[in-house]
Simulated assay, not measured.
Amino acid sequence: MVLDLVLIGLAVTLEPVPIVAFILLLSVERGVRKGLAFITAWLASLVLVLALVLVTTGGTPPTRGSAPSTAVLAVKLAIGVGLVTYGEHRRRRLGRPRKPPAWATRLNSVSVWSAAGLAFLVQPWGLIAAGCATVVDADMSMVTSYLALTGFCLLSTGSLLAMQIYATFCPMTAQDRLTGFRAWIERHEDQAVVVIALLLGLWLVGRSVAQLVG
């Protein structure tokens, strides 16, 4: 479970769309405050969905080979296949011009509450679903499970936290450097999405198939 959560957490924190949205948000008026609202909503929604999973399972992992365990593996397999399919779809569209998302043109006038809503909108829910399917195996009677879940939440938010801290304590230099970073990400966004989706999707497919037939 821990290795899967680490890989999924890395995929979430490196997802280009939330990073670009967050950098744009930091560049507007009262950007640091709105960035804090974004991170708070991001973490809250992440913790909420994980908590719902744990409430459903009772904090006890399903018995290996049981119907619930097989169903969870089937879900992870389906998510993996979906990621691979999406990654391949984006790979075939590499180099084609894309329109900027609608929210990108409205950030100059966004409120603190809207910034929080944006976090929910741009969260990579396909990757979060993979994390939720993995969390089903958490045994909440063990301290290591709490540490693993905490680490997953922090890792999934790591890139945003780093930028928020940078913009808070080094506002003069952060603006230019984050703008340059955003431009670099936008030039390589499609390639990053393809790599993340294909690698994580293939990992989930391989792990799920191995556990289903093992």
Rank of each mutant, 00 (worst) to 15 (best):
L48T: 04
L200D: 00
S145Y: 02
I39M: 12
H89A: 15
C132G: 10
K99N: 08
W42D: 03
R33T: 12
L149C: 08
S159Y: 15
T150H: 13
A116D: 14
A74C: 03
Q123W: 09
L3G: 00
S66L: 02
V213C: 00
F169R: 03
F120H: 07
A133Q: 04
R177W: 14
L155A: 00
R182M: 08
A119T: 09
E186W: 00
W103P: 02
G206K: 14
L198H: 14
E186H: 05
Y146E: 01
M1F: 03
Q211D: 09
T57E: 02
L54A: 00
D190R: 15
F152M: 07
L202P: 14
C153F: 09
R93C: 00
I8A: 06
A102C: 10
I185E: 06
A148G: 10
I79H: 03
N108W: 14
P16V: 11
V135G: 01
A115T: 03
S66Y: 09
Y146L: 03
Q175T: 11
G31L: 02
G80N: 07
S114D: 14
G180Y: 12
G158R: 11
S27C: 08
I19W: 00
A167E: 01
F152Q: 05
I39A: 00
A167G: 01
T157A: 11
W103I: 00
G95E: 12
R90C: 13
P62S: 07
S114A: 10
C153I: 10
V81H: 12
A67C: 02
I23R: 06
L36Y: 00
S141Y: 04
T70F: 02
V72R: 03
